[in-house]
């Protein structure tokens, strides 16, 4: 099967901006012959009900991800740094909103 033409369609990740002013968000992936083709297909697959106003496609193999095995090392240290959040600090009632 590796010689069939559909095999030479590469995999793209699709990102959709749902509304002007919001971020593009990952919605899924699809196969296409090139990037322009991927945008066309993404329009048909992911915006049939006005889910978006803009589409990004990225070749899947261009994405570098953090290692899931490193998840604890990467992200757990932040759990103890609660002083980075405004709710860590008591504000006297007399002061009100700050």
């Amino acid at each position: 099967m590796s010689t069939s033409p559909e095999s030479s369609w590469s995999l793209f990740e699709v990102f959709i901006r749902s509304k002007q002013g919001l971020d593009h968000k990952h919605v899924g992936s699809l196969h296409a012959s090139d990037a322009a083709h991927a945008v066309t297909l993404a329009r048909d697959v992911y915006t049939r009900r006005q889910e978006g106003v803009s589409i990004w496609v990225v070749p899947s193999n261009a994405i570098t991800a953090s290692d899931p095995d490193q998840r604890a090392d990467n992200f757990d240290p932040m759990a103890s740094k609660i002083y980075r959040h405004p709710t860590f600090y008591d504000i006297p009632e007399e002061i009100g909103h700050m």
Binding site: M1, E6, L11, D44
Partner: peptide, 25 residues
């Protein structure tokens, strides 16, 4: 057309597990 789209969402989900689209078809 929706049904075709559903097929695509699902094939894509299966591919994230290492299945090849060609093999599934």
């Amino acid at each position: 057309q929706d049904e075709g789209g559903h097929g695509l969402y699902l094939y894509s989900a299966a591919e994230t597990l290492g299945a090849s689209r060609d093999d599934m078809i």
